[in-house]
Design a protein around this nucleic acid. Sequence first.
DNA 1: CGTCTATTTGAATGTACTCAAAAGCGGTGG
DNA 2: CCACCGCTTTTGAGTACATTCAAATAGACG
Lengths: 207, 207
Amino acid sequence: MLKSDGAHDHHEDGSRQLLKEYVRRNVDFGDPELDAFCEPFSQRTVARNAFLLKAGQVCRFEGFVTRGYFRLYAEDPRGREKVLYFAGPDWWVTDIDSFTNQVTAQLSIQALECSELLVISKTDKERLYAAIPKVEKLFRIMTQKTLVALQRRLIGTHSLSAEERYLLFFSDYPEIARRLTNVHIASYLGVTPEFVSKIRRKLATRR
Amino acid sequence: MLKSDGAHDHHEDGSRQLLKEYVRRNVDFGDPELDAFCEPFSQRTVARNAFLLKAGQVCRFEGFVTRGYFRLYAEDPRGREKVLYFAGPDWWVTDIDSFTNQVTAQLSIQALECSELLVISKTDKERLYAAIPKVEKLFRIMTQKTLVALQRRLIGTHSLSAEERYLLFFSDYPEIARRLTNVHIASYLGVTPEFVSKIRRKLATRR
DNA sequence: CGTCTATTTGAATGTACTCAAAAGCGGTGG
DNA sequence: CCACCGCTTTTGAGTACATTCAAATAGACG
């Protein structure tokens, strides 16, 4: 993983721009703070199907996706993969438990296509916390939003049929859903790939 | 709701002690910071079955439970109640989305028995953020822990049978589970009360 | 064109739900 | 002490939703 020195390429500048806009949408940072915040991030490219993190490792990074898509999943006791969420541009990826407490990760993070992200290490993130108090607020807000989304999903899982969850997923995340195989959609919805196929047929014949 | 002035009763002092110990376990606060942190909280008693919050209201508080138990739940589209979690002593209760963004709450919070908690208002909490930067860290850590727990629960919901979730709930939270009716357990597990009864019979005859 | 993988299909099975009825279980008042 | 009330739990039959396993089909790519 090469870290570009002083002279960043145009592509990486674009990624940093995306990160800055993300931050600006969530907290009021001045330009100097914004630059200081972005500085410790380094660009990383991940090939299709490559792993950013595998369960069992300790997660050394927190990443902001700038291009492509990832799946974050855990293996259940029977060895089946359960997707927690898919992350595209403007999403963050990490195993938050493993990263903050430096314990072994339960999650795996895999690129669905050739993807790019900006990553920061734990020590650099802690330096940011110390240097810019508002960073603490930024990450608190991010975590809160994730929590609210996850609460909604849990309720939905208990309330809706697989067909309803399928339709909700496609209406909430059409861009992501379009790119996914049946297997991935199934492991997000918590059903078998065969059943996703049956949902599809039912929806197709109904129209 | 009476607010005790200067001279707190012994009971309330005990509650504050519980809160202080909670904070100390999570961040390193000095004694002055600890006192300043606890100061804006006020004690509140809630009768059995009374509501601390009803969906549709705006949540004006964040609460630290010191005695008793609460259920936090949402109503699904078909009007069935889905419990997100039960909160006993040492747990926090709020609709985090409603509280932080002052939008109408999706959650309802009801006391399962006569209960007590320490509550703080949004403006007081924001004063704390401003006065003691480490408070931001405390709440970030709290939110992170909640997020990790919720992630595990979502995976479990997709991975385990109702019977397995029932056993897991009882082994994770025996103190809470003991006090609950079938209806509440069912609405936490995401099954019908009738089915909880059938799980019970199966487990009983197996031994 | 053949190979590899993903998707679809069907039959049999299992898990959990619905609805209705019966049984249990404190309380409360006669 | 018992009879009755309201509430929760249990039970059972019938049904719906989702899984498993195996086989057929369709797509993608060299």
